[in-house]
Computed example of a mutant assay.
Amino acid sequence: MAEPHETVPFRRQFIASVRRNAVALISLTVALFGTSYNTWRNQTTEAHRNTRAAGFMVLETLGQLQEIADRRYYGGDHSDENRLSGWGKVTVIRDMSTLVSVNVDTQGHAVFAAWQENVDKLDTGDAQAEESVTRAISALRDGVIADLRALN
């Protein structure tokens, strides 16, 4: 164990050393803080950029899916091409929704489920099927827009 008279000179030397190097220590602290902040800001910006890109893709695909559903219900287009295109759109919506937010992901799965349950009913002119698909699309659209507006 150190003697009390030995710690006093060390403490004085340490304080004197800090005073001599204060500018360097402050510069190092500022540099570390600046680098940390810059890294955090870059990661946040990239996350927002990815969310925006996924959100816009979901919105665009939702519009295309609504058009396909309307063609099946109102226009009588019951072709296999129309059906396959609809399945492609709901799959993209479901997959891209996970990149926006948890809420949008849930709604994206709801659109997929609504399409899955009602695509055949659209061919028979079932109004409830059309309303179910349109409601799911509208809810997801509102969720995506709300999440995009919340980004800063």
Rank of each mutant, 00 (worst) to 15 (best):
T134L: 02
S138G: 04
F112T: 05
A16M: 03
T35V: 14
N82G: 04
S79K: 03
G125P: 06
E81S: 14
I137N: 06
I145N: 04
L32I: 10
V90A: 01
R83D: 06
R135G: 02
A113D: 13
E130Q: 11
A150D: 11
R72V: 10
A53K: 08
R11V: 12
R11H: 11
F14I: 14
G108Q: 08
L148V: 05
F33G: 10
W87D: 10
W115K: 02
A136V: 04
F10P: 00
V104H: 02
K89L: 13
T45N: 11
I145R: 04
L148M: 13
H109V: 08
N118W: 02
K121A: 11
V23L: 05
D123I: 05
D77M: 03
R12P: 01
H109Q: 13
R41L: 08
L151T: 08
P4H: 11
E117R: 10
E60T: 14
G76L: 05
R12H: 15
A69M: 00
D120N: 11
L59G: 03
L140C: 07
V133S: 01
K121Q: 08
T35S: 15
V111H: 04
G63T: 11
R72I: 11
E81Q: 15
L59A: 02
L32K: 01
S138K: 07
T44V: 13
L62K: 03
S132G: 04
I68E: 05
R141P: 02
E67H: 15
N82Q: 15
Y37K: 09
R149Q: 14
Q116H: 13
N21A: 04
E3C: 01
E60K: 14
S36C: 06
R72H: 07
Q128P: 00
V119A: 12
L99D: 05
A113Y: 06
S36A: 14
W115R: 03
D147K: 06
M57G: 06
D126L: 03
S138Y: 03
E130Y: 15
S36M: 07
V111R: 02
A47F: 12
Q64H: 13
P9I: 11
T44W: 07
G88E: 03
Q43G: 09
L122H: 04
Q64I: 15
F56A: 06
T45R: 12
D123L: 10
G86M: 04
V90C: 00
A114L: 07
A69N: 01
A54C: 01
A16E: 09
R141T: 14
V23F: 02
S17K: 11
M1F: 15
S97W: 01
Q66V: 04
F33D: 05
T124E: 08
R135D: 11
D95V: 12
H48S: 09
Q128H: 06
D77N: 13
N21E: 12
F10R: 15
G63S: 10
Q116Y: 09
A24P: 00
M57A: 14
A136D: 03
D95N: 15
D95Y: 06
N82R: 15
T98P: 00
T91M: 09
I145E: 13
Y74M: 10
R12N: 12
Q43R: 15
L59T: 06
T29D: 09
T134Q: 07
N50R: 14
M57P: 00
M96N: 04
S132F: 01
D105M: 14
L122K: 02
L32G: 02
R71P: 00
S97R: 02
R72L: 08
L151G: 09
D142R: 10
V18G: 03
S85F: 06
R135E: 14
R135K: 10
N38G: 07
